[in-house]
Each structure stands twice: as C-alpha cells, then as structure tokens.
C-alpha cells in the first residue's frame, strides 16, 4: 500500500450550502448508486436539489473551482453511502467546514482524506456570509491548530482528536494499521465464545 500523505491544512475557495440536516440522499440520490465503481459520481452531486433550484450554490458559476464546502448542522445524515463524500471529493471538495456532521459521514470522509471541521453556528454563518459576498476569498483550514481563516476573519473549527491526529500523521486510511498486528486480531477472535463455538 502506498504511504498515505499527512493532511495538515487545506486551502481554497469556499462553497456555502446552507441548511440543517442535509442528508446523503440529497447529496447523492440513490439512483446513482447503481454502479460497481465510484467513477463519475462528481457529475451527480446534489443533482435533484440543483434541478429544483437554479440558485443552488452548486449551480453558481461564482463558486466554480471551490474546494471548501461550508455547511450547517448534521450534514451527511441518513444513509451510510460513501458515494456521497466520494462524489464531493471527485467534484473537487477537499475539506468541509460545518456546525456538525453525521458520524458515519465524517468517518467515511476521513478515510478518504477529506477532513470535516466543526465550528459554532455564529462562526459558520459568518464564514458562509463572507463567501457569499466575496466568493474569491481564500480560505485556509488548518488541521492541527483547528483554525479556519477567510481573509482577515479567523474562526475556531476543530476535528475529533483521533481524526485530527490521523490526518497529521498521515494515517487517515486505517487499513494498513488494522493489518499491522494481525495476530492480535486473531487473539481476540479466539477469546470470543461465538467465534470458537461456545
């Protein structure tokens, strides 16, 4: 396995998507899960929301090329489909800054190298407003310090400590770690009565 890269910070322009409880069915409608690969998912991110709303931020040319998604509460709730963060990443999103995330979404995003930063409502509102007013503003989200800057605005936005450490050490893709001391996995298996047949 190729050595994963440390992800210390993400810099880019912002893409604000307002609204609480945006579920993964909205991010990636189920019909696009009919596939045996993740290829091409970037074309279908928020497809139905975009069709219903010509003003949807993903339709807005001012945000073209943006890489930092700025969202509200409980982003990515619902289905565990990794197709949602896969679609976002393939679209060009490299970090998400929001009020809160569903745990499954945040975990799926992390193992793909996509950090999800959490900040309070007021900070997120400020960040969204700045980006809406000045789409060209450069945002930097720093993993280790948990500071997100946009122009001269600076907000606190943190990652769960284990995920933060995983990004900093480059160990955000855990498979190699999980296989590293496989004999210990076998040991646990031999201790579990349902594995050994009671």
């Amino acid at each position: 396995m190729s050595q994963a890269q440390a992800i210390l910070s993400v810099t880019g322009r912002g893409l604000p998507v307002r609204g609480d409880d945006i579920d993964t069915d909205r991010i990636m409608p189920a019909r696009f899960l009919k596939a045996v690969s993740f290829e091409g998912l970037e074309r279908h991110v928020f497809e139905d929301d975009r069709a219903a709303d010509p003003w949807h931020p993903f339709n807005d040319a001012r945000y073209k090329g943006a890489s930092i998604l700025v969202v509200n509460r409980n982003f990515g709730c619902g289905s565990s489909r990794e197709h949602a963060p896969q679609g976002l990443a393939r679209f060009g999103i490299a970090a998400v800054v929001g009020e809160s995330f569903s745990e499954i979404f945040q975990g799926n995003a992390a193992v793909m190298g996509l950090p999800c930063f959490a900040a309070d409502r007021e900070s997120i509102d400020r960040l969204q407003s700045i980006v809406e007013k000045t789409p060209e503003v450069t945002i930097t989200a720093d993993v280790q310090s948990g500071v997100v800057t946009a122009g001269d605005v600076r907000i606190r936005a943190s990652l769960p400590s284990a995920l933060r450490d995983a990004f900093v050490s480059g160990q955000w893709n855990p498979t190699a770690m999980l296989l590293d001391r496989f004999e210990e996995v076998r040991e646990v298996a031999t201790r579990l009565p349902y594995v050994t047949g009671f």
Partner: peptide, 14 residues
C-alpha cells in the same frame, strides 16, 4: 472486542 488502541487514538474493534 477491542484489539488495541491504534496510533491514531482510535480503537481497533473486532
């Protein structure tokens, strides 16, 4: 079901 504490700080769970 805990295998070990991973270097990342997460738990490896069987």
């Amino acid at each position: 079901h805990t295998v070990r504490r991973l270097p990342s700080g997460q738990t490896q769970l069987f």
